[in-house]
Design a binder for these strands. Sequence first.
DNA 1: TTTTATTTTCAATAATATTTGAAAGTTATG
DNA 2: CATAACTTTCAAATATTATTGAAAATAAAA
Lengths: 166, 166
Amino acid sequence: MEYSEAKERYIEAWGSLGSSWGVNRTMAQIHALLMIATEPLSTEEIMEDLKISRGNANMNIRALLDWGLAKKVLKPGERKEYFATDKDPMVLATQVAKERKKRELDPIIRLLDEVSAVQGEGKEMQEFKKVTTNLKGFAKQADSVINTFIQSNSNWFFKILGKITR
Amino acid sequence: MEYSEAKERYIEAWGSLGSSWGVNRTMAQIHALLMIATEPLSTEEIMEDLKISRGNANMNIRALLDWGLAKKVLKPGERKEYFATDKDPMVLATQVAKERKKRELDPIIRLLDEVSAVQGEGKEMQEFKKVTTNLKGFAKQADSVINTFIQSNSNWFFKILGKITR
DNA sequence: TTTTATTTTCAATAATATTTGAAAGTTATG
DNA sequence: CATAACTTTCAAATATTATTGAAAATAAAA
């Protein structure tokens, strides 16, 4: 396979993977590009490589910064901003876990807390209470697992998992 | 909080959670409804409760069956089909893990296998090879963890995690 | 076989999400 | 301060995805 083809396929795949991970397509593609870049990239370079507009590039770079998946790099004597990402997959995983927990798990736990406290009689309501309480318990278990994963050195965490799953 | 309000909020939240988990909104809402139902529901009941069209209901019920998140229940002497879901959150998690692995992780591992095999010299290509190879290794680790989770009794798996994260 | 209940399909429509590009905003430099 | 380099914003245009509803398909019952 040609390098150019491999690169294209990799970027495209990363993009569609992103969409099923709560990250928009272009955002994931920019991330993919930063992963394989040998040095920090400017907005221009990203625009050119992915053939996207300036506005689009800017928006999605901001989103990556916001997710903690890219960082600004200033080259001495240059005014332009450059961007880079951490290349360690474990750092990526930790960061995504952290953000998604904040955006998804935390809110759903809060909601389940509220709705499972609903008062009243009736078969339907009893069932509702039971199910939402179960879900809440499960969500909290997941939360504590994720917290450990985020806080601790994730490699350590994975090593233990590795032993279990061997 | 009123039961009706709690129910609405729960269904709405489950729906938007679904969209960030690779499951479409309506599909997740139908699942939410089945979770709290005291007995299997018919297409009509689902349509009415969620105020959606027959076509929409049908399509998304099929998708739930396809994901293994709902099953058909036939009532003796009745022609109509009813649907139910497993109410154990752990079963839900296992099933989602299984399907998402199949739809996302497996394909990306195959792709990384291909593209990381690209041949040639040059700094850029070396970096590309290095990064994609790392990602592949990470993806395979994740794969084996998920496999254990799917195959084993997930409660057992979670209990061990619980001990680690205590 | 014909009727009737039920499910499925799918083209048209509606709703959402993304992208563009040019104008406005910002900030370093002479 | 004025200019130039660069970044951000956002309304309009496009693209993508979800939904409707009526017609077609299926299959049990008469």
